[in-house]
Design a protein around this nucleic acid. Structure first.
Lengths: 344, 344
DNA sequence: GTGAAAGCGCTAACAC
DNA sequence: GTGTTAGCGCTTTCAC
C-alpha cells in the first residue's frame, strides 16, 4: 500500500489510474453520478480506488468552483462562559446535521475584533454566519449584506437582520418575583430592597432585564430607585468591587440581589464568601444564565437557564428560510428555582 | 457609493477600474509589492479603490493557488468543560497572533467522530492541527501523516506525533498528599481510606493520575487496594451513581476523595448534596482541573489548574519547529489548595 | 454512459 | 515598474 505519496491524490491521479476521465471520477466521488447514469460497477471501482489511495477532496478547489464553501461561521464573545460554551457545543452539532462545517471564533466583546473576524470569515467564503452577543450587530450586518452572506443575530438583536433572543424581560421578571417571594422584609429600611447587579447601560440584554426587574418590583415592593440598578459590566472583578461598595453603603446585604449573568454571579460570590454565614441568610439571590456548579453553592440561587437548542434552532431556520426578514424572535428561557439542582 | 454590487469584487474588477493588470493589483493587496517595486502612488490608489469597493480576498482561491489555507484546526472533546473552554479561548488568541485562523471542532470523545472531523479539516486544507483529548491519537496521526499535515497532541499523547501533556503524575501526587495532610484518621477502618474516582481504564491521563495517587499513598497511608480506584468514566451521571454505591458500601464517606476531572466532581456533588452536612465534614476532597464556581462550594476542594497557556504555547512551538519529533513534553499544572470556604 | 474543455479567483514565473 | 500567462483541483456544460 502506497501510504505516503509525495503529493495528495487528486481526481486526475485517480482518473489516470482507473483509465477514465476526471469528470467521471468527480461525479462518482461527489454523488452526482446517478444523473450521469454511470454504471454501478464503474462507480464501485473508483470508490475503492479512492479509498485505497486515501483520496480526500480539496474543498478549497470545490468551493472556488461552486462559489460555496460548506462552512458556517459563528462569532461569540468568549468560550469561558457556560452559556456560550453551550452555544458552541450545540452549534457544532446542528451544523453537522446540516452537512455544514462549523467555524467558531471568539471576539471578546471588542467591536473591532468582531468586524475583523467577520471579514476574515467572509474571505473564507462562509455560506452563513451566526452573530452572537455582538456589541455592534449593525456594523457586522453592513459587511455581511455587502458580501451577500446570509446571517442572523442571536442573543443581541440587530435592526437590519433577523434576530433571535432570550425573552429577557420575562426571565428577569420571573427571577425578580422569585426574589420577592423567597425573601423576607428587612428591619433596616435602607436594606429592605432588591438590587440589580451587572450589565452595561445601553446594552440590549441589560436594558430588557432591567425592565423586567423594574416592572415586577413596581407591582410588588414598589418601583426601584436608580441606585438599586447597578450596571457594573460583565466582568467578575468589577462586580466583586461593586458588591464591596454596596455592602459598605448599606452596612450589610440587602433583601435580595439579581445578577445579570453567571460571570457576574461569580464576581459577587468572590465578595460574598468573605462574609460570615449569618449575614448571607437574610439575603435572597438570583442570576440570569445557569451554571451547574453555581447550583451547588451553599447560598440558594434562582437561575434562568437559556434554551440554547431553541435559540439556535430558530437561528438556523431563519438563516435557511427567511434571511431577509428583520423580525426578532424571543425564546423563553427556563426558570430553575433555587433548590432544584438540575436542569432536565 | 456602489454598496451592493451583483457580485463580490475581484482583483480583475479592481484592475479594470484602475487601468492596470490583475497581477499588479494582486501584489499590492497581498503585500508583495515592494519586491515588485511598484510605486507608492500606484499602491495607494489601488488600496483606496479596494477599500471603496469593500474588496475582500477570496481565500479559497488564494489557498488553492498557494496550497495553504491559513487555517489551523483544533479538535476538543467538548466545549462544556472549563478546561477545554479555556483551551479554545487560548487557542483562538494564539492562532491569531500567528496570523492563522483558528477552526475548532468538538468530537465528544467518539473515535469515529474524531477521525471524520480530522478528515474534514484536512479537506479544507488546514495548515496545522492540534489534537486534544483524543481517544485514538494514533488513528488521527495516520491520517495526518498521509496527508502531510503537521500536528501535535495535547492532553493525551500519541506515540507517533509530538505531544504535550499535563504532568498528571505530579498533579495527582500533589492532590493526594494534600488529601492526606488535610484529613483525619477515621475510626472505622473500612472508611479510613482515600479513593480515586472517575476516568477510564487504559486512558492515559487516568492511568498517570492513578499512578501519582498510588505512589503517594504507598509512601504515606499505605498502598491502595484495587477497590480504592474507581474508574467510572468522565460523565457526571455515572459518577453520581458510583458515589451512591461507594457510600452504601462503606456506610458513610471515606477519609478522602480524589476526582479525576471537574465534570466528575460535578457528578459527585450531585450525590454529596443529599447528605447531611455533618457527614461531609469528615471527608476531604480534591479534583483535577479547576472551575471557578467549584472553588466556592461549601465543601473545601483542592484543585489542580492546568497551565493552558503553557500547554498550547508548547504545542505551537512543536508544530512550528519540531513537527517530526515524537517527544512528550510535560507541563506542570498549578495546585490550588482549598482555602477557607465558610460561605458559598 | 463518458470525455473534453472552460473557468472559479488568485499567485508567481517570466517577459518586456 | 508592469503585463502576460499558466495553473492550483474541482465542477459542469456540452458534445458524442
Amino acid at each position: 500500500m502506497n501510504s505516503n505519496p509525495k503529493r495528495k491524490a487528486t481526481i486526475y491521479d485517480l482518473a489516470q489510474a482507473a483509465g477514465m476521465s476526471p469528470s467521471t471520477v468527480s461525479a462518482i466521488l461527489n454523488g452526482t453520478w446517478k444523473q450521469r447514469r454511470i454504471s454501478e460497477e464503474t462507480a464501485q471501482r473508483v470508490q475503492q480506488l479512492a479509498e485505497a489511495r486515501q483520496y480526500s477532496v480539496n474543498r478549497q478547489a470545490r468551493g472556488l468552483r461552486k462559489n460555496r464553501s460548506g462552512l458556517i461561521g459563528m462569532i461569540i464573545p468568549t468560550y469561558e462562559d457556560k452559556f456560550f460554551a453551550m452555544m458552541s457545543q450545540t452549534f457544532d452539532g446542528m451544523a453537522r446535521e446540516r452537512k455544514l462545517h462549523p467555524i467558531v471564533a471568539s471576539t471578546l466583546r471588542e467591536p473591532a475584533l468582531e468586524v475583523a473576524t467577520v471579514r476574515t470569515l467572509i474571505s473564507y467564503q462562509v455560506d452563513h454566519l451566526v452573530i452572537t452577543g455582538a456589541t455592534d450587530p449593525d456594523a457586522v450586518h453592513r459587511i455581511c449584506r455587502h458580501h451577500g452572506v446570509a446571517h442572523v443575530n442571536v442573543d443581541l438583536p440587530g435592526r437590519d437582520a433577523p434576530s433571535v433572543v432570550s425573552d429577557n424581560r420575562w426571565g428577569a421578571a420571573k427571577l425578580t418575583a422569585a426574589l420577592v417571594a423567597s425573601s423576607r422584609p428587612q428591619a433596616d429600611a435602607a436594606r429592605d430592597r432588591i438590587y440589580f447587579i451587572g450589565g452595561s447601560a445601553g446594552d440590549y440584554a441589560t436594558e430588557c432585564r432591567v425592565q423586567g426587574f423594574s416592572d415586577t418590583l413596581a407591582a410588588t415592593l414598589g418601583p426601584p430607585s436608580p441606585g438599586q440598578i447597578r450596571r457594573c459590566g460583565y466582568g467578575a472583578v468589577r462586580t466583586q468591587e461593586e458588591m464591596a461598595r454596596l455592602h459598605a453603603e448599606l452596612g450589610g446585604l440587602p433583601r435580595g440581589l439579581l445578577f445579570v449573568s453567571s460571570v457576574v454571579l461569580e464576581g459577587a460570590i468572590r465578595f460574598l464568601r468573605t462574609l460570615p454565614e449569618s449575614d448571607l441568610r437574610s439575603c435572597a439571590f438570583a442570576s440570569y444564565d445557569w451554571d451547574p456548579f453555581a447550583s451547588y453553592l451553599r447560598i440558594p440561587v434562582h437561575m434562568m437557564c437559556q434554551d440554547v437548542q431553541g435559540l439556535l434552532g430558530a437561528a438556523f431556520t431563519l438563516i435557511e428560510e427567511h434571511p431577509l426578514d428583520k423580525r426578532v424572535i424571543e425564546i423563553r428561557p427556563k426558570f430553575v428555582p433555587a433548590g432544584l439542582r438540575r436542569v432536565a
